[in-house]
Simulated assay, not measured.
Amino acid sequence: MTTARISNCARFAERSIAGGGTPSSAWLGWRRDVESLDLDECPALIVVAPHPDDETLGFGATAASLRMRGVDVTVVAASDGGGAYPGLSPLERRWLERDRRAETELATRMLGLDPPIWLGLPDGELDRHEDALTDVLTEFLSAAAPGSWCAATWRGDGHPDHEAVGRSAAAACAATSSTLLEYPVWMWHWAEPNDADVPWQRMRRPVVDGGCSVRKRHAVNVFRTQLAPFEPGGDPILPPFVVQRLMAVGEMVFL
């Protein structure tokens, strides 16, 4: 089953990460009523991350809150994470994949979650593997508790891998009558408050338990491969202002 493409890849490509994007202050000064999402309705959760770190950056506090409540939480890492830096040799790519896996397993442990399920799909090429990913997610959701939630990156997030994961999750949820939550990550970079390309009417704010946001902040800090330059003088994948913006706006989902 396929889902309609609602892509913002062109908009993301127009705004370089190094350029800063929409600052945290613009979002914090924005006033919009966002309905709360009651986590008590969740029987089980599968969190799908395009890359090793998205589960923590986009949904870590909510996942930790649900686990604290006794909800079964499964993290699925779609890609191997080896494409974060272009031009790596095969050996360097294997080293990066190893390090990103170790970082994610530490971060999920800090959030109180079980180690991720690793699918090992190629970073940067997830749109070529959507059918396979949809099949895997459908299998997972079919085996989960009835009415389980699936949290995945938003289909309009702007990053091609994020959007591919969102489409696969949407198709799997439709096939299994599961509840889909789409969490934005890069939307906060390229979009503007009240942006016409964002479905604000569908946005919800999960009500997270006390302390889980702090645990998320500590977990985010373990992703050194993304927070520090790969080579001296280079730019990190996640500059400090990107992390600060994500922590400032908090976790949101499209329902």
Results as ranks from 00 to 15, higher is better:
M1R: 10
T3D: 00
T3R: 01
R5H: 06
I6P: 00
I6A: 01
R11W: 12
E14W: 06
R15M: 07
S24K: 01
S24I: 00
S25Q: 12
S25L: 13
G29E: 06
G29S: 09
V34R: 02
E35A: 15
L37Q: 11
D38S: 14
D40G: 11
P43W: 11
L45N: 09
I46R: 04
I46L: 12
V47I: 03
D54M: 04
L57A: 03
G60C: 10
A64C: 15
A64T: 14
A64Y: 08
L66G: 06
M68H: 10
R69C: 07
V71W: 06
D72V: 08
T74C: 10
A78D: 06
S79V: 02
G81I: 07
G81L: 07
G82P: 10
G82S: 08
A84Q: 05
Y85W: 12
G87R: 09
L88C: 05
L88S: 03
L91V: 13
L91I: 12
L96F: 14
L96K: 13
R98H: 15
R100P: 01
L106G: 07
R109V: 03
L113C: 03
D114P: 04
L119D: 01
G120M: 05
E125D: 14
L126G: 02
D127F: 14
T134S: 10
D135G: 12
L137Y: 07
F140L: 14
L141H: 00
S148G: 14
W149M: 12
C150I: 14
A151H: 07
A151D: 06
W154Q: 04
G158C: 12
D161W: 01
H162T: 06
V165I: 13
R167C: 00
A175F: 07
L180H: 08
E182C: 09
Y183G: 04
V185H: 13
N194H: 12
D195Y: 07
A196P: 00
A196D: 08
V198G: 03
R204C: 14
R205A: 15
P206F: 08
C212T: 15
R217C: 12
A219R: 09
V220K: 09
V220I: 15
V222C: 04
R224M: 06
T225K: 05
L227T: 06
A228D: 15
P229W: 05
E231K: 08
P232Y: 13
G234A: 15
D235I: 03
P236E: 01
P240K: 03
P240Y: 04
F241Y: 08
R245A: 05
V249M: 00
G250E: 04
L255Y: 10
